[in-house]
Design a protein around this nucleic acid. Structure first.
Length: 150
DNA sequence: GCCAACGTTGGC
DNA sequence: GCCAACGTTGGC
């Protein structure tokens, strides 16, 4: 079973917001590689939640895919910053799965700590210049992160 | 199809 | 706020 990691800026939408909402449509992703990962997500898949531009940035908890990706409604909303004039109802470009809250780590695992872990070598998040906001995580890396988080 | 210019991400 | 590293756009 694949595992995933999604980034979010806590000022925009934090894991606390997800906990409050119980689940949310993971909208507003506008990058093709990330989009492709979102479309691969299946109900039950586990998803690490990462806070970027945070103090400190790091993995703060875990959620679960509740429903596979459907067209992201923000692409059709002319008033949205995420409106995409090239997207149509027949041919949507962007997709959003429904993610549900799982648990919040007692202590976040900061990026600094992730970098120090030999067991996390090769993790996409840690690759130079990696800016992807959605990525896959190998079972071994996922297990290692859960172990660090306690 | 190349590539310069521009925009964005995200750590620091 | 800076800036490296990418991604995207658009002229040619």
């Amino acid at each position: 079973m694949p595992h995933w990691l999604v980034k979010t800026e806590p000022g925009e939408y934090s894991i606390d917001d997800l906990q409050r909402d119980k689940s949310t449509a993971w909208t507003q992703v506008r990058n093709y590689q990330a989009r492709n990962y979102l479309r691969e997500m299946k109900p039950g898949d586990e998803v690490l939640i990462y806070h970027s531009n945070a103090e400190p940035s790091g993995i703060v908890g875990v959620g679960k895919v509740k429903a596979a990706a459907r067209p992201d409604p923000t692409q059709f909303d002319k008033k949205s910053d995420y409106y995409d004039p090239k997207a149509t109802a027949e041919n949507p470009r962007w997709f959003a799965p429904e993610l549900s809250f799982g648990r919040k780590f007692r202590k976040p695992v900061p990026l600094e700590a992730l970098k120090r872990e030999e067991s996390l070598e090769g993790l996409q998040l840690l690759q130079r210049g990696s800016r992807l906001s959605v990525m896959s995580v190998s079972p071994a890396h996922f297990a290692a992160i859960m172990k660090i988080a306690g």
